[in-house]
Design a binder for these strands. Structure first.
Lengths: 155, 155
DNA sequence: TTATCTGCAAACCTTTTGCATAGAT
DNA sequence: ATCTATGCAAAAGGTTTGCAGATAA
């Protein structure tokens, strides 16, 4: 499953004649398997810990490469830090404005909604639409509980 | 019109007991009247040129303040720079991935779409949704023309 | 009056760069 | 063999901070 994603992404890169270095493979593999929305630093620290030969500059370079091929997307939560997410299946993100947690939402309804959005945009702006980034903000259930707001959320 | 927006925003801040310094008013007014998605630096340079007493730190502080009250939203185009937009009327943004231009889209259909998105999110994640940020990416008409893609876009 | 904001400049932190070496194709 | 990526460390760039003086309420 995740392995399929990884192979799929590798193939895309190969098709574009991108040189597949061990570092690039490692980072890609890391992102495919960690849906924790890591920052560059987290990726770097984790990989270094596992004795992988890697430098922070390479992580930055590779992330940018993956962004270029839309294999990864960039996310910012409220506190200003930048996070990354492997973007295999179409989904969008929900950010908790209290704890900063980012959650993926995969749902069929999203596909329709996404299509409508692209339609509307094309009609209104005459842009040639290639993709969209959707981010919903709010309070996660845990933080609602902290604030004693759960009843309100259920209604 | 823009003046109404400005007064509306001022009232919100006043209601929250935010101290209304000349610098804050100037920056707010600037944002209400410049839908050019300026960066902090642009705002600072423009205001300084008009002989306004202001420092870059104050621009940063005020922007953060306005973000907190959701009077302004933060945007990133492809090239990594950070831009801001006064967010009076609900709208979303379309970013040209070639030239970096950011365009506002105001449309009634967006309201419905936005509502559906919030619905879906609440059902799927049990978040207490407060807002959403939507960004569509593609090629603007001008850049399509540059690449001789206009015919394709019209179809 | 008094708590808060401003301006300045230094500090900070994330990201980028330049260059010599290593390595993928 | 060749062209591109890596790693390092230094530089850059953007953002934040600490503090003394100013000021909104």
């Amino acid at each position: 499953m995740a392995q399929d994603e990884y192979l799929h992404a590798l193939k895309i890169l190969r098709n574009h004649k991108v040189r597949l270095t061990p570092q690039r493979k490692t980072i890609l593999n890391y992102l495919v398997n960690h849906h924790t929305h890591p920052s560059v630093e987290m990726i770097y620290d984790d990989l270094k810990q596992h004795n992988d030969s890697i430098s922070i500059a390479t992580v930055y370079n590779t992330i940018r490469l993956l962004l270029d091929y839309h294999l990864v997307i960039e996310l910012k939560n409220g506190d200003g830090s930048t996070h990354y997410d492997y973007f295999g299946q179409p989904h969008y993100h929900v950010v908790c404005d209290n704890c900063g947690k980012i959650t993926d939402v995969f749902t069929d309804e999203f596909t329709d909604l996404s299509t409508s959005l692209d339609e509307i945009t094309r009609q209104q702006t005459h842009y040639l639409v290639t993709r969209n980034d959707i981010e919903v903000h709010g309070l996660c259930p845990e933080c609602q509980a902290k604030f004693g707001l759960l009843a309100q959320a259920e209604k």
